[in-house]
Design a protein around this nucleic acid. Structure first.
Lengths: 338, 338
DNA sequence: ATAGTCCTTTGCAGCGCTGCAATCGCTTCT
DNA sequence: AGAAGCGATTGCAGCGCTGCAAAGGACTAT
């Protein structure tokens, strides 16, 4: 049995298909009488527009895609959770893609011709892609990038001020009296820009307090996972002069670090204070609860969607814009105790 | 500037558009010479098929939608993480929707005419929808349901054997010598079927061990969150005769319960043993690590996609099938200590 | 040489909708 | 009364592709 179409409705209502279309799309200049007739017919037939056909006709898909490296990373799933309703409100469906941080996969998504009309725009949280990679992209694809890359002028970028946030995090550790502060999560290579900004904040806070950085306390990790945090912390504890505080580049890393500390019989924060980054829900319920930098995820999501909608709606490519969302330091048990 | 179309390629290659289409779709009976000509033209023009048009023409969208109640719940994000690659492998894009467990929202998704050709099928993890609600649905929508509902014969259902799994969990608590065992998460109302199956297992394990259930130790919660677990545990501790073990209906609940216990200065598992459900990544890294029932998420995802693809590919509606994925008990620190 | 067979290629029509511009009917103005 | 104006409605064409069935061409069998 065929689905009911615009034409069926038109026949039943005794008007032209075009008028039905007008009613469905809320076109203003339709008399109430006509509108009512059509609406009755729609109700009677249970008509629902075929989105595919509509999209083909008007050249838009009504979908945006959100691309994240990992879906099961709480930070990204929380962000996605905020993006979906914002997009829906703007009349867009959300496709989701995860890249595992794979450079080739990420490249193919933003590359020339990638678009295929499946989506009208993209919110992209790159991981494997360096700043340079990002610049080689389909200029016709409306793009909003999240995270730490900076805009090259052809797309919008929404993120928090990572250097400032990291500086605050480390300043907080200094403020509570810690002097041997480690950092877990550095990534001193092209795709590690996110990490490098945090390292920069780490140094800035030291400098501001007149402290010198012990370079050997800056530990690199391949990713920002619990296991990375746990492993790095174990390495730090193996040293003769372990730190009395650690700035972790994500809450997951922090959680892993705490795990290792407790397993070694050390107390948090008495022996080692820990601060994380992202403010994921976990950090609020573990024991100890984890001090963190909290980016305003709601604002990031709303802003990203809003900017993307703007870009998609504009005939001319808009100049790229750098947008800073708010963040704040949330001290919890892992630095200030109970 | 217009995108290049099939017709453009056809002109350049000196063949008909239909032949180009045949090449693009890998139709077998195209001579190598022709194929090569066409492929050269495609490469030269950078042609990419317009998915929208293709879908309109053949009546399929090539997309499936995965509907979950909450995206930031680790169980669901981990599941989604497994579903996406499985779907991609089968040639489908994944749309994601979250319902917040809202009954009306869930209803509208499976209701008559919901389909709209935006997606060819749905993998649905209902929460607000009762078994009966589920039966009032668009029969034309290929549907695979995850979780605890049972199939009414018009859709497939993939889940683990919750009663058996719950029985094992509680049996484990009994085995390590606990006798006053509480349950956190019961939901004795129509949409709480998931919870009720676990409660049934709770009772079954008691019966099998010849123990009687203290009904007052079965605590209801509105959701399966950390905060629910924390609150319920606090209520249990307020009693004159607190339990010595708790079966939590999710790992998040377990995590909340552990949080409360530690905050009260109690030891886990010495004073109170805790077992959860879902095997989310968190449970493997907290302190203590949380014993749990681990559903085989990979198998669930693969099976769900496989069944859905089968349903979507069939002209006749297939009879619904009940599919049980494997699960296993994973004892960790929260029951067996260090 | 003609008919029959088989495989490649093609033309037609249409998926269901909307952009565009024209049309229609009515009111208002001169 | 006729022209002009205006808003409601309509028809046409086409978005880019594929299903279908038929046409065309080469080859084999008689």
């Amino acid at each position: 049995m065929r689905e009911t179409t615009l034409r069926d409705v038109a026949e039943l209502a005794g008007v032209s298909p075009r008028t039905v279309s007008n009613v469905v799309n809320g076109y203003a200049r339709v008399t109430d009488a006509t509108r009512e007739k059509v609406e009755r017919a729609i109700a009677e037939l249970g008509y629902r527009p075929n989105v595919l056909a509509r999209n083909l006709a008007n050249g838009r898909s009504g979908q945006i895609v959100v691309v994240v490296p990992y879906l099961d990373t709480p930070y990204f799933s929380e962000l996605l959770q905020a993006i979906i309703p914002a997009a829906r409100e703007a009349g867009y469906n959300v496709l989701v893609d995860q890249t595992d941080g794979d450079r080739a996969h990420e490249s193919s998504l933003v590359g020339r011709g990638a678009r295929q009309l499946l989506f009208d725009g993209m919110i992209f949280s790159p991981l494997g892609l360096s700043q340079d990679d990002l610049s080689v992209r389909d200029p016709a694809l409306p793009l909003v990038v999240l995270g730490e890359r900076t805009s090259d002028g052809t797309f919008d970028h929404v993120g928090i001020d990572d250097v400032a946030a990291s500086t605050e995090a480390v300043a907080h550790l200094i403020e509570i009296g810690r002097r041997r502060i480690a950092a877990i999560g550095d990534q001193p290579y092209p795709t590690g820009e996110a990490a490098q900004l945090r390292t920069r904040g780490f140094r800035a806070a030291h400098a501001a307090a007149g402290l010198t950085v012990d370079e050997s306390l800056i530990i690199g990790t391949a990713r920002f996972n619990r296991i990375d945090g746990a492993t790095a912390m174990a390495a730090l504890l193996d040293r003769s002069d372990p730190p009395d505080a650690v700035f972790c580049y994500s809450d997951l890393v922090a959680s892993g670090a705490v795990h290792t500390l407790l397993a070694h019989g050390l107390r948090v924060p008495e022996d080692v204070a820990i601060i994380g980054y992202d403010d994921i829900e976990d950090g609020r319920y573990g024991r100890p609860t984890i001090s963190t930098i909290s980016p305003d995820k709601g604002a990031i999501a709303r802003t990203a969607v809003e900017r993307l909608v703007m870009r998609m709606g504009s005939a001319e490519p808009l100049p790229g814009k750098e947008i800073r969302a708010a963040h704040r330091l949330i001290p919890r048990q892992s630095t200030i105790g109970f």
